[in-house]
Simulated scan of single mutants.
Amino acid sequence: MTTRGPSKLVVLISGSGSNLQALLDACADPAYGAQVVAVGADRDRIAGLDRATAAGVPVFVHKVADYPDRVAWDLALTQSVREYEPDLVISAGFLKLVGKAFLAEYGGRYINTHNALLPSFPGIHGPRDALAYGVKISGATLFVVDDGVDTGQIIAQVAVPVLDDDTEETLTERIKEAERAQLVEYVGRMARNGWTISGRKVTVG
């Protein structure tokens, strides 16, 4: 798919927004080819929302507890994202699984990053599980979100060596650095050059 002018990004967050900040910084360069048009969250009073507000980016919050069920929450989230007509929706530390309505509208355009080399070690403890298994190489995966847990098509991966004296904390921190750089690089490439999905294969440009 291709777009005219800067690609519009909606970024979803749940915490400090360090990946969001990296994207905001990258978008400050017109050559990057993208613009963050809104930031959504599943909780309020988090640093990531402050980062967005400081950058002049509109924000919205949908807390699951404010809705009768997850379906109603998913519909509200979908509606808020729709208002900004994004070309790409990015989960940047967003800790909620979206539902059928969201994926029906943004399937193929909703991406997430995971702190392991998928399909190995899915779920919320990627670095811990990698260490426990004794792998020598871990890393980060950028992927298209589907209705599974970390099962979508892989866009890009970056390897991070596991050191003999690594703890979960030290490995996690090194993966975060590689993960953030990969996210910024590939969001820019997708924004500028478009992407196609054929079966399990994603081609950027």
Rank of each mutant, 00 (worst) to 15 (best):
V149M: 12
V89R: 05
T113F: 09
D50S: 11
L88W: 09
L131M: 09
T3G: 13
L20M: 09
E105K: 04
A191H: 08
T2Y: 00
K176R: 04
V184E: 00
N112L: 01
Q35Y: 10
P127N: 04
F60S: 06
G194A: 07
L77C: 14
G148L: 13
S91Q: 07
S138G: 02
P6M: 00
D146H: 06
F121D: 09
Y84L: 08
T151Y: 10
E83V: 14
L24M: 09
A101G: 12
Q182M: 15
H125E: 11
M1H: 04
E168A: 10
A159D: 04
A72L: 03
G139E: 02
D42N: 15
D29T: 13
I175G: 05
A181D: 05
H125N: 14
A26L: 08
I124M: 13
A34V: 11
P6W: 00
A104I: 10
L95V: 14
Y110I: 11
A116P: 03
V36E: 10
V145M: 14
L23G: 06
A52W: 01
G108V: 09
I137K: 01
G199C: 12
A34Y: 05
A76V: 12
L142A: 05
Y32A: 15
K63M: 12
D165R: 15
K100H: 13
F102E: 02
T151I: 11
I137R: 01
L23E: 03
L183K: 00
G199T: 12
D146F: 10
H114R: 06
V204E: 05
I155Y: 00
A34N: 03
Y133T: 09
G99W: 07
I154E: 00
D42M: 08
T203M: 13
M190S: 12
Y67V: 12
D66Q: 11
A92F: 01
A41R: 04
D164W: 12
D50Q: 14
A38H: 06
Q157P: 02
A52L: 07
D164P: 02
C27A: 15
A101N: 08
K136L: 08
T172N: 03
R200M: 05
I111W: 01
D69S: 10
R51I: 09
Y110S: 09
V202I: 13
D166A: 13
A132L: 12
G108Q: 05
A76S: 13
L12P: 06
F94P: 03
R180D: 00
L131C: 09
A132N: 06
E169Q: 08
P30Q: 07
V135K: 08
R4V: 14
R82H: 07
R128G: 12
R180M: 06
T78W: 07
L49N: 02
E85T: 13
G33N: 09
L117P: 04
L163I: 05
L97G: 04
I124H: 03
Y106S: 09
V145C: 07
T53V: 14
Q157C: 03
T113W: 02
I175V: 15
D147R: 08
E179N: 07
I90V: 15
A140N: 01
L23W: 03
E168V: 14
R82C: 05
L77D: 06
V64W: 07
I13A: 11
G205E: 06
Y84W: 15
Q153Y: 00
Q153A: 15
A181P: 00
A22T: 01
T141L: 10
R174V: 02
L117I: 14
V61T: 15
L77V: 15
L77Y: 09
I154V: 14
T53F: 02
